[in-house]
């Protein structure tokens, strides 16, 4: 990072990578989205509500949410074994838990909503990008939601708090903190921290991440509006 705060990829401290979201890219899924978050390229597909298999997982009071985050073997420089790794299982779990407060499952007893996330190309912050795509895909599938979920990471690189940590910064940096937010309700649904931050740094880091989430939300919103209303705001 340079003295005046220009980062390794030319961004300012509080600048997001380029994000583009496309809604409804998979024909066979009930809802889907494709996100390019910097160099991250991620597909998310939603199936359901549908019958639960195995049947013992079904909940008679409400629907259940299942999430699978998977990285393609070619998504990273060294071939990744396609079997779910410890990291992928963890990310599947945290994404599920980040989406759960937003999705209204009460309306669909004895059913499941499956969210499949496939990382085609990874470059740091893929769990946030995956979550952004999954939230849009859920909305596309018409699953009732209290709010969208927008996620963005912030971190500490070369003793400075930066927004949206990329892979290089993640490897070299001192901390990485992914945050997911329900922007209209103002509730945080995911907060992880890898590294160490002083209490004041944590506060600024959190603030930075929340600002990032809100910016991501605008992009998610635009993507949905484009698909359904051809951007004709009324």
């Amino acid at each position: 990072m340079t003295e005046d705060g220009i980062r390794c990829d030319g961004r300012r401290l509080d600048e997001l990578r380029n994000i583009s979201i496309k809604v409804g890219v998979l024909k066979n899924a009930d809802g889907s989205a494709y996100i390019e978050f910097g160099k991250n390229k991620i597909l998310a597909g939603v199936f359901g509500p549908r019958d639960v298999h195995p049947k013992h997982m079904a909940n008679p009071d409400s629907g259940i949410l299942r999430c699978r985050y998977h990285m393609s073997p070619f998504s990273v420089t060294e071939r990744k074994n396609p079997a779910p790794s410890r990291r992928e299982i963890e990310i599947s779990k945290v994404i599920k838990e980040a989406l759960q407060p937003a999705v209204i499952l009460k309306d669909y007893p004895r059913t499941v909503i499956d969210v499949f996330i496939e990382v085609l190309q990874a470059d740091g912050g893929s769990r946030c990008a995956a979550l952004d795509a999954a939230a849009v895909a859920l909305a596309d599938a018409g699953i009732p939601m209290r709010d969208l979920v927008s996620a963005c990471a912030a971190g500490k690189v070369a003793d400075r708090i930066v927004l949206d940590v990329n892979n290089e910064e993640d490897q070299e940096g001192q901390a990485d903190m992914p945050v997911a937010l329900m922007p209209n309700l103002g509730k945080v649904t995911l907060l992880q921290l890898d590294g160490m931050l002083k209490p004041e740094e944590f506060k600024t880091c959190m603030q930075t991440a929340l600002v990032g989430c809100k910016r991501v939300y605008e992009i998610q919103r635009k993507a949905l509006m484009e698909k359904y209303f051809q951007n004709g705001e009324q």
Partner: peptide, 21 residues
């Protein structure tokens, strides 16, 4: 109005009907 999940439609003493929380 065109809305997406999470959009505040209105505030005040109203009754939420279908697809409103």
């Amino acid at each position: 109005r065109y809305v997406i999940p999470g959009d505040v439609i209105a505030t005040g003493p109203l009754r939420p009907e279908q697809n409103v929380f």
